[in-house]
Computed example of a mutant assay.
Amino acid sequence: MSVPEVLARIREVEAAAGRPAGSVRLVAVTKGHTLEEIEQKVLPHGAFPLAENRGQELRDKSAAWPEAEWHFIGPLQRNKIKYLRGVSLVHSIEEVWQAEALAEAAQKWGHAPALLLQRHNGEARKHGFLPQELPLALRAIQATGLEVRGLMTMAPYDDEARAEAVFLETARQAHDLGLSELSMGMSDDYPLAIAAGATLVRVGRNLFT
């Protein structure tokens, strides 16, 4: 697929779900791709967020295009905080200390990224807050002064029924917590996520094939 094809598919699924056109934003995941590939295959097709899950790649690519809207979607370790200076949204907060460290760094930067809290999907190897932990975690993270916009989750692979259930459960909990942003869905399952209420879909592989 290509960026125009993915964008067209997003609009198609939006319409089929009865959602307003433009209610879902593509987040273009550029991990593992060169500056040349990104410049040729992604940048000509619109202004949407670019995302990385590795600190060093984020540092190098955001330096090439500082005017772009950059998101961080990977596991956040303490030694990666310094790379997030130019990021507008962090999708992957799974511990309160991560928000506290970002809030401390933001005082030096003069600006702070907004946050999404990662909701665990039930798989043993996946990360995130358990659903029952989220209300308390949300209050603790909001106490840092950073803006929490919503939730992020990753659905189980190769199980469409379970993926749909995870997306719907995440959307329901975000609503109950008063959060409006939902980062759900990747290359293989973003149509299911859009139907469940995703506002951000993280697509990488499909943009470069």
Results as ranks from 00 to 15, higher is better:
residue 1 M to C: 10
residue 1 M to V: 14
residue 3 V to L: 12
residue 3 V to C: 13
residue 3 V to E: 09
residue 6 V to L: 07
residue 8 A to R: 13
residue 14 E to Q: 12
residue 14 E to P: 05
residue 19 R to P: 11
residue 21 A to C: 11
residue 24 V to I: 08
residue 26 L to D: 11
residue 30 T to C: 14
residue 37 E to C: 08
residue 39 E to I: 01
residue 46 G to Y: 05
residue 48 F to V: 09
residue 49 P to E: 11
residue 55 G to P: 04
residue 56 Q to K: 05
residue 65 W to Y: 08
residue 65 W to E: 04
residue 69 E to W: 00
residue 72 F to C: 01
residue 73 I to K: 00
residue 74 G to P: 05
residue 81 I to C: 03
residue 82 K to F: 04
residue 86 G to C: 01
residue 91 H to F: 12
residue 91 H to A: 07
residue 92 S to K: 08
residue 103 A to P: 02
residue 106 A to Q: 09
residue 107 Q to D: 01
residue 110 G to Y: 07
residue 113 P to V: 06
residue 119 R to S: 15
residue 123 E to L: 14
residue 127 H to G: 04
residue 131 P to N: 11
residue 132 Q to H: 14
residue 137 A to V: 11
residue 146 L to V: 04
residue 146 L to H: 08
residue 151 L to Q: 07
residue 151 L to N: 08
residue 153 T to L: 02
residue 154 M to Y: 03
residue 154 M to G: 06
residue 156 P to K: 09
residue 158 D to M: 01
residue 159 D to M: 09
residue 162 R to D: 01
residue 164 E to A: 15
residue 167 F to G: 10
residue 172 R to E: 15
residue 176 D to Y: 00
residue 176 D to R: 14
residue 180 S to G: 07
residue 180 S to E: 15
residue 181 E to P: 00
residue 185 G to R: 01
residue 185 G to L: 00
residue 187 S to C: 05
residue 191 P to G: 11
residue 194 I to S: 07
residue 195 A to W: 01
residue 195 A to C: 05
residue 201 V to I: 07
residue 205 R to V: 05
residue 207 L to S: 11
